[in-house]
Write a protein that binds this DNA or RNA. Sequence first.
DNA 1: GTCTATACGTCGATAGAC
DNA 2: GTCTATCGACGTATAGAC
Lengths: 183, 183
Amino acid sequence: MPRAQSDTKAEIRAVALDLFGQKGYEKTSLREIAERLEITKAALYYHFPSKGDLLRALIDPLRQDSEDLVRRFDGPVDDPRELLGAYFDLCVRHGTLMRALLNDLGSLTEAGLVELVMDWRSRLDAALVGENPGTPARMGAVVALGGIQDIAVVLPYGDAAAHREAAVEIALAALRAGTSGMD
Amino acid sequence: MPRAQSDTKAEIRAVALDLFGQKGYEKTSLREIAERLEITKAALYYHFPSKGDLLRALIDPLRQDSEDLVRRFDGPVDDPRELLGAYFDLCVRHGTLMRALLNDLGSLTEAGLVELVMDWRSRLDAALVGENPGTPARMGAVVALGGIQDIAVVLPYGDAAAHREAAVEIALAALRAGTSGMD
DNA sequence: GTCTATACGTCGATAGAC
DNA sequence: GTCTATCGACGTATAGAC
């Protein structure tokens, strides 16, 4: 009896996320995924036209959420705290996926995520310090956003949200050291 | 006539670094490297026992330099500026290799560099804020070191060293915001 | 619409001759 | 030190059963 419409597709995604997270994208073969689902490689090929498409399907929620954030802050920002806090929240919300990606950096490149993130970051930089800031000001923005991300994704292993305010304050200090220190 | 003893080995390393940097480690095949040197795949295996060993040989200078830095600051530091500056210098010194690795994040995992870097970073964190700092203090250290690295590797595309002082000041601001802000 | 059987070309790696 | 020949596993692809 055939399964319900999107049932197999969902099962494939679940198993793939698990295996990619454990062994990494490149080192996980389609044969392994198929064996664990007790189907064949070719059946996978019916649901996802390639291994890369399967990976991209897993990453899509993070991608869409990030695009929303960038659109929301598409211009000069009066209170950096708002942007820094929202960026923190996003990193926490997708923390599980982001930690999995950290353990498998290769898939970032494979999924074309690196270029996307670089683009988002430069647009958020611009929202924080303008389009053509002095070099130190740009440094401050780079450190502020990168720092928020490091804290939210790497540090917590539990209650990340509890340290949201402290993280924002630290990022703000770096941002100010860049914009006011010299120019 | 056979080449001089280590000549072929050096040529392999040069071609491999070039191709890995252009197309990434996983997507560069040994056949390509061999063809460009006008030898066969099997000849590569005489000089390097595996593809991974070839990659590790390329990364070794960075690894050794980093280990030296960690050993040099193995304990409490009175002037964080010194550590932050030295870390900046290291990132600039190996900037070409580090940018190549950024374009090919998969090789970081492949070479086992991720665990090594996490270990170095946590030891440098300890040198900055002690073994068991409060959470905000640890955050400050994470942002300071991560920020130095981002600035030195990603920003410059040219005169990185010119901005060394500004980078150290920004990192210092984040560090202080963590240690003094609350505890 | 969902899946199996089967195959193709390439990969990293090895064995053994010269 | 370099070669030819070969291996099993991989991602991909198509034909056809149900």
